[in-house]
């Protein structure tokens, strides 16, 4: 079980980084060949964010760097949480974040215009809603997927 404020703290950092990607991506759209598209600051930053999402969803949010940062720097300054949370919802949400940002990276490398900024914008909305309001879009997506699954099929 984890402190529910930990993923929200991490989502806040992610939202700030994604905001940087959006602004840089919109103000300096890449031109030229694949290498120059990839070796572009917003592309590289989104790549780093995407790698952190992958880390969070495979190693679990408890072992995520932001989780460690929260435990060592933030948690000692706060009171105890009202209740603990199952780490599976935020871990699932990290997976959704990875899929969205990875799609932006692939399309961006292929030269689709503004792919990096649009992917960053989608992830930014989710991260901001999560950190500021505790609203987990990824968790809602899970139910939508469930609706599409035929009856009787098991998870």
């Amino acid at each position: 079980m984890i402190d529910p404020r930990s993923p929200r703290f991490g989502a806040g950092i992610t939202a700030v980084l994604l905001a940087v990607v959006i602004v840089l991506g919109l103000s300096a759209p890449p031109a030229g060949d694949v290498a120059s598209r990839i070796l572009n600051p917003p592309y590289l930053l989104l790549g780093a964010i995407s790698a952190l999402f992958l880390w969070g969803t495979t190693a679990g949010v408890a072992r995520h760097p932001y989780g460690l940062l929260f435990r060592t720097l933030v948690r000692p300054r706060l009171g105890p949480p009202r209740e603990l949370e199952d780490p599976r919802p935020p871990t699932f949400a990290q997976g959704v974040g990875f899929v969205v940002t990875a799609a932006g990276l692939v399309l961006g490398a292929l030269g689709v215009p503004f792919a990096v900024s649009v992917a960053a914008a989608l992830a930014f909305v989710a991260a901001l809603l999560n950190s500021a309001f505790g609203y987990c879009i990824g968790c809602q997506l899970y139910l939508v997927l469930l609706r599409l699954r035929p009856s009787g099929a098991r998870a």
Binding site: E83, E85, D86, R88, P89, F92, C136, C139, L143, L146
Partner: peptide
């Protein structure tokens, strides 16, 4: 669901 952060509070 398992992927539900608000469920424990509601259960309580």
């Amino acid at each position: 669901t398992a992927f539900c952060s608000g469920c424990p509070a509601t259960r309580r």
